[in-house]
Design a protein around this nucleic acid. Structure first.
Lengths: 255, 255
DNA sequence: CATGTGCCGATTGTTAACAATCTTGTCTAC
DNA sequence: GTAGACAAGATTGTTAACAATCGGCACATG
């Protein structure tokens, strides 16, 4: 009886090949002509990455629905997507808010970045051609602009994009995806834990990385990347500040 | 004019605290004690990882809803979650199916695994204590059992779990998440592209890895891991089989 | 026989109303 | 005045019905 829809036999019979879509139903890149949810997803994601929405900011379904002119359902779907990447947090019956990473999470994110970005060095050196180096240099120009302007958010975004760009050079979409996620979370972390007196101009470090790429010196690149990441992390104040507050009852339980 | 972190007070004011749930926010139903969607997510994920659901198998919302005794909405939500991790594919108006990774994707997944798992070697050596080694050895026992039995799926699952276990030892949840995703996709890839005559007993390779961990030889561990991953990939038949058929029109576009 | 056409069943996409829940403010009892 | 109860408002969670879409089949047609 009960040979449910989950039986392996059925699975084979109903197998599908992924279609390349004869007529570009969705090109999946961040263009403008995508499905509405994709568009909304990118809008919200960008707002968070650019610090226009800060950690902890509430994301009310109705309000977002009105802003983007769609029904709550779309918004819910998008918020769930963002929640899976830890960019927003959803609490049952209490709604969604821009994620507020704890110190522990922040350290884990940076540890992951060290592992992955440093390990990427040899791959970068191997795959970077002249065009890639040119893209990197072009990008640095934008970073310098960002620093000259007073738009801190723009500067930070550009600085983060540099790291994703490095991953894109390797051409591995899986890794690019991972790095995108890591950079989004890094952006949140910076918003919370950045020192007020920070002044490290990351575009200098980035220029140095490019130089090493041009020299095809994988080892030096890895070392420089590690140092760069350590520098970024040391520009943060990574100890608990307001996390404990969250456990008010626990904190004052015995007082 | 650098403004400090969190200069916008609005976000601060609307900040929300993550609650550990005083009691039974998510009680009821099924033994595991999570929210129903989490439970369903794991059930479907496990079915795919264990090859009870093969690549291409259609995942019809109504059927799944009946199987798990929930409404379509929950199922939809879960399917979208799985889609985001590339474990299932969703085509608009055509529903969801277990993902069918292309050869290109397969190569990218393995390239990503090489980067991450090899880079993890020093971390593993650094953080692995006796308890960790014991866990690994215990796990290997299970792998051997799996090999003795004729249950190929179980064997494969155990073999994959070993890799996630390695990441868990390091204790970085971000990396664990990445590796989970990579192993799930690897499972799909194996289901499609595995050679019929494959015979490499990965538990031997795994035992070797454990030995190197005990010796705290990071370099040798990295080298062995790389070799292991290459071995796994070379046990696959990674060239296009049925993909090209889809692009007939493109092929003859200019002839 | 090959080709095109239109309908039908199955499945997904969408909507709007309703129910459940949390937060906040107010009121009353001591 | 403080504490507890209570009610109102806002927001999320859920449901079921409806609309849109796709794939396949039969059928007519050349």
């Amino acid at each position: 009886m009960r040979r449910g829809p989950l039986s392996a036999k059925v699975a084979r019979l109903t197998m599908r090949k992924p279609r390349k879509s004869a007529r570009g139903i969705e090109t999946e890149t961040t263009g403008s002509g995508q499905s509405p949810e994709t568009h909304i997803y990118h809008r919200i994601h960008a707002a968070i990455a650019e610090h226009r929405l800060l950690p902890g900011a509430r994301l009310v379904e109705d309000q977002l629905g009105e802003v983007f002119g769609v029904s709550r359902m779309r918004i819910r779907s998008v918020l769930h997507s963002l929640a899976r990447e830890k960019v927003v947090t959803i609490h049952r019956n209490r709604g969604a808010a821009v994620a507020y990473p704890t110190v522990k999470e922040a350290k884990e994110v940076f540890a992951a970045r060290r592992v992955i970005e440093v390990a990427l060095a040899p791959e970068i050196v191997r795959t970077a051609d002249e065009a890639a180096v040119r893209r990197l240099k072009d990008h640095i120009k934008k970073e310098r602009q960002g620093e000259r302007s007073t738009d801190r958010a723009f500067e930070l975004k550009a600085s983060h994009d540099f790291h994703t760009l490095l991953a894109e050079i390797v051409g591995n979409r899986v890794i690019v995806g991972f790095l995108r996620e890591l950079m989004a979370r890094s952006s949140l972390i910076t918003a919370i834990y950045e020192r007020p007196d920070v002044s490290s101009c990351s575009h200098l470090a980035h220029a140095n990385l490019i130089k090493l790429i041009e020299r095809r010196d994988a080892e030096a690149l890895a070392a420089a990347m590690l140092k760069h990441l350590d520098q970024i992390e040391s520009d943060l104040v990574l100890f608990e500040r307001e996390e404990p507050v969250t456990d008010l009852k626990t904190v004052f339980a015995d007082s």
